[in-house]
Write a protein that binds this DNA or RNA. Structure first.
Lengths: 226, 226, 226, 226
DNA sequence: TGGTAACCGAGACGGTACGTCATGTCTTATT
DNA sequence: AATAAGACATGACGTACCGTCTCGGTTACCA
């Protein structure tokens, strides 16, 4: 309605967009970030190079768009307890990072972004921030269940809650990424359980009463203990 | 006697090695990973391109060697408590990641390594494993101070201890890297204290009696609590 | 209709072709064959190296095209007698071989061609065969003047005529090239007269009556006689 | 006596010289001039590159020495008539030029020599001048047989004789080289006979009586006639 | 018989050019 | 005006040889 800015000339092909992003993902799988070229993506998509450059300013931005959709697959099923919810999302996130198109692309675009503000912003809005809602939602549910205390009232309380969300997000995502890509060891259910135990105990003992989950004995607690 | 592997021909110049790695670091600072070229490094080092390729199979491996030495600067000063030790190393690690040569290089080589086994191995042996001793040493000290329980006896106990070290390492390093490079927010002393609190509480409440450090009230606990 | 071989895409720049061949000749003059590099030619022509390689498979083929045009300058002025015509073309050919761009290039590409069939063919069609018409034309004129007997009739006669043309061509071109480039002595009018005398006597005495030209006393016959 | 310049130190290995020149020839056969490298020759000869450079200033000079010896194989057997002698040497020279090591090397070093005075001199003294004696000797024999008139007396006569030798040498060598390498057609006995006929008639008709050889009917005279 | 000086192999070195590849822009003609 | 095709300027790539330079070690002559 309001965007009648483009009226004249041939409109852009929506099919081309889809074909290009599909081609980008398949090229990532086969060639990795380093082997991916604009010309090759164009050829796979049956499209001219010009068409790519008309839509994205750089390879990095195109890849961010191509990969972002994969992160939307992550969901937070309500499994009845915070422990179960966290373990589930840890494993789902690890599985996502195991896929060749994400594994190779994520670190590469982050590396590019260290020198490119626009790209960094695009990554944050397109990928990072959209996943943070998983933490927000999980926390809300846990509070509803009584597993976590409610947010303190007032603007200071909200800020503290935000800081807590950010910390938990960086710890979970960071640990999984580091384990998976830097340490290069696989994220097993055992490891996920240990990480979850560490996290929940860390959260619970500082604030208020012991949550319910702390009472459930974890069978292999020793592996996660220090 | 047994180490006379290289006997014949002109020996490689140690000065060239130094000049190349220095040039690599300064080129990283000025140009970043993406702008760094072998020819430019060679020129800065006053060396021929062939001399680079004679020593390293790729730009990635050269950069790993160039930045690895920076990671060796990390130390674990004995500040008297586990909490202080952890906070100190978190801040030191974050400061290291803020340096332009590490910031731009680390994610890039990790990205490359997702498709290159040799490079992944090189990163692990040259950078990752050598920093893990910080965790080992910190844990040993904390056990000596009575802040953490001693290792369980027997081979199973040792294995559990190894798993614990790995987990803590991935959590600390991962959280810092993710905060710094992916979330692209600075690691402040406040954030470091919150992370440390989360970690120490997580470790303490699973095993045995409450350690001494847990009793110390952290002034801004709310920022790290959930 | 049938010649629409190239329809799509940006057409090749004719200006680039000209600039490249001009640059090749001037580089040959200044640097010689050995000093000529593709990159330098590209720079002189204000063109990218890839543009050269898009047109020619090798330096040799490019140089053949660049010097071929110079050979087209050779003409056969009708000076009224076979002797004068031959002397004229011998001197013109020698002058051409004295030019630095031909002198340095011709032997070099011939040397390359000893191992490269495609190049040999290119030289033959682009340079050698196109000059043979000088012999054919000179012979035709001499026959018209009665200086040489007409071709024998029938296909055998034509074949014999072809063989004669080839032989004369190889003798003239070969002697001039050898004198100029191998013996490295200059082709003077005296030498040209001696060669012409040798050739004309050789041709005349085998067939029929003494032609008119043989009767003209050459002033410095001694220099060419044996 | 006079060559006591080198007294002390280890003398150069004569075996190395032989091995290097042999290796040069075999490398020429396999790789041609363009593919021949100093490193490869050194390896084939079981010798260090330094040893090559201690003996020759350049690849060209080394190759000249390596192929020069092949030209010494040419001989002038006394077949009883000038015609037979010339035909024989034409065919022998052509056979020599058919050998891969000479074919590719001769034109290449001549090409190099167009810009290198020292090399040109080396070629002249090592290859060209040493073959000219074939013409001198053939002429002397023909004079002894009465097939050619004796040299005119006095210094002018000697100079004229020299010029004649040079001309004949350039004609024979040039025609064979041009036919073989530029026109790229094989030198057959028929062609050799035609060239010889042309040459002998050219020489005979200018000076004195018809030589004996002119009386022998050549079976395929037509091929050489014009 | 022990120096000494030039030789030798190996191979690293600073260079230069190679021919290829990808980038991002531009010209065509077509839709 | 968007498209497919493909030529274009640019610039890095990794390789190959060049001719020079260290190395450790080997002869042959001479004192």
């Amino acid at each position: 309605m309001a965007d009648s800015a483009r009226r004249t000339g041939r409109p852009r092909s929506a099919a081309a967009d889809r074909a290009i992003l599909d081609a980008t993902r398949s090229a990532l799988v086969e060639l990795g970030w380093g082997g991916l070229t604009m010309g090759d993506v164009a050829m796979r998509a049956g499209v001219a190079k010009t068409t790519l450059y008309r839509r994205w300013a750089s390879k990095s931005e195109m890849v961010v768009d191509a990969v972002a959709v994969l992160f939307d697959e992550l969901e937070l099923p309500d499994l009845g307890s915070l422990r179960a919810d966290v373990e589930s999302v840890v494993l789902a996130f690890a599985a996502l990072l195991e896929r060749p198109e994400t594994k190779t692309a994520l670190m590469a675009v982050v590396a590019e972004a260290t020198r490119d503000d626009a790209l960094r912003t695009r990554i944050r809005t397109t990928i990072v921030e959209r996943q943070k809602h998983l933490v927000v939602e999980g926390r809300r549910r846990a509070q509803a269940r009584g597993e976590l205390p409610p947010d303190p009232p007032g603007p200071e309380g909200a800020a503290a809650a935000d800081r807590a969300v950010d910390l938990v997000f960086d710890v979970i995502a960071g640990a999984v990424v580091h384990r998976s890509l830097v340490s290069a060891e696989s994220v097993t259910p055992v490891w996920a359980r240990a990480l979850t135990a560490l996290l929940l105990h860390g959260l619970s003992s500082t604030t208020g009463p012991a949550p319910k989950t702390a009472a459930e004995p974890a069978p292999d607690d020793r592996s996660g203990g220090a």
